[in-house]
C-alpha cells in the first residue's frame, strides 16, 4: 500500500537533485498547462515533455503505469460520462443510450488531462522523498503571514506530511479490522449497513488511538512548531536557476497566449 502513495525511488538524476521547491513549482506550472491544452499538438507536446523528463530520471515507464492503475475506474467513469451525456452528432446508438462525437472528443481530452496531472505528480513523488517534499512545502509557505493565523509553516507542513502518513496506516488497520470481523461471521453482502457500522466504529477508535500514540512519540522527541531544522540541506543550485528561467518563459507564454 505504501508503494501506491509514496513511490519514491532513490536515485541521482538531475530531477532527483533539483531543489524540491523547484519541482513543486514545476508541477504547478505543468498543471496550469495541462488544464489549458485541448489541441492534439498541445497534448503531444505534454507527452514529449513527460517522456523526456522520465528519460532523464532513469525510472522505468512501468512504474508510472502502475501508479495509474488504481485510478482506472475513475478515469473510465469520467470518459464514459462525457461520452454518453454530451449532446451532439450521434455516432453510436443503442436504444436510449447514445454516444456523440463531441462527447468522444471531450471525454478523451478530460481523461487525458487527469492522466497527465497524475503522471506529473508521480514524477514529483518518485524523484523526491516525502520529507523533502515537506521541507519544500514548508519553505514555500514561509513567506506567507501564517503566524497571524496562529500557526507556523512548520506546523502546516507537518500536518500535511502526517496526513499523508496516516493514509496507509488507516488502510492497514482497516484490513486488520475487516479480517477480524469477517472471521467472526460478518456478512458484507447480506447486511451491508451493519458491515459499515461494525467496521467504521472500531476504525475510528483505533485511528484515534494511533493519533494519540504518534503525538506522544512526537512530544517525547521534543517536537516544536518553530526552530526546527531539516536533514535535507535544501538550496538552489545552477540547475534550479536554469529551471526557474525556463518557468518564467513558460509563464510568459501562458499569460500571453
Amino acid at each position: 500500500m505504501n508503494d501506491l502513495f509514496f513511490s519514491f525511488i532513490p536515485g541521482d538524476s538531475i530531477l532527483h537533485r533539483l531543489d524540491p521547491r523547484t519541482k513543486i513549482l514545476g508541477l504547478m506550472l505543468a498543471s496550469m498547462f495541462i488544464l489549458k491544452v485541448s489541441s492534439f499538438t498541445g497534448m503531444s507536446l505534454l507527452v514529449f515533455v513527460f517522456l523526456s523528463l522520465v528519460a532523464t530520471c532513469k525510472i522505468p515507464l512501468k512504474h508510472f503505469f502502475r501508479s495509474i492503475r488504481p485510478m482506472l475506474i475513475f478515469f473510465s467513469l469520467i470518459f464514459f460520462m462525457q461520452l454518453f451525456f454530451t449532446e451532439g452528432q450521434v455516432i453510436f446508438q443503442y436504444r436510449i443510450i447514445s454516444a456523440s462525437h463531441e462527447g468522444l472528443v471531450l471525454g478523451t481530452v478530460l481523461t487525458l488531462r487527469f492522466v497527465f496531472l497524475l503522471l506529473f505528480a508521480v514524477l514529483l513523488t518518485s524523484t523526491t522523498s516525502p520529507s523533502k517534499i515537506t521541507a519544500g512545502i514548508e519553505r514555500l509557505l514561509r513567506p506567507l503571514p501564517l503566524r497571524y493565523a496562529g500557526i507556523s509553516s512548520h506546523d502546516l507542513a507537518m500536518m500535511m506530511s502526517l496526513s499523508l502518513y496516516f493514509v496507509p496506516l488507516l488502510y492497514d488497520s482497516f484490513k486488520v479490522l475487516r479480517d477480524s470481523q469477517l472471521s467472526r461471521g460478518l456478512d458484507v453482502k447480506k447486511s451491508p449497513l451493519r458491515a459499515i457500522f461494525s467496521l467504521s466504529v472500531p476504525l475510528v477508535s483505533t485511528s484515534l488511538r494511533a493519533v494519540e500514540d504518534v503525538s506522544l512519540a512526537m512530544e517525547s522527541r521534543c517536537y516544536r512548531g518553530s526552530g526546527r531544522t531539516s536533514v535535507h540541506s535544501i538550496g538552489y543550485g545552477p540547475m534550479d536557476h536554469i529551471a526557474i528561467i525556463i518557468y518564467l518563459f513558460l509563464l510568459f507564454y501562458y499569460i500571453v497566449f
Binding site: 509514496f6 520529507s131 506530511s161 502526517l162 502518513y165 500514540d213 504518534v214 506522544l216 512519540a217 512526537m218
Partner: peptide
Amino acid sequence: SQFIGMTVG
C-alpha cells in the same frame, strides 16, 4: 505506532 517518518532515516 511510534514512527513519524516515512523512512527509517
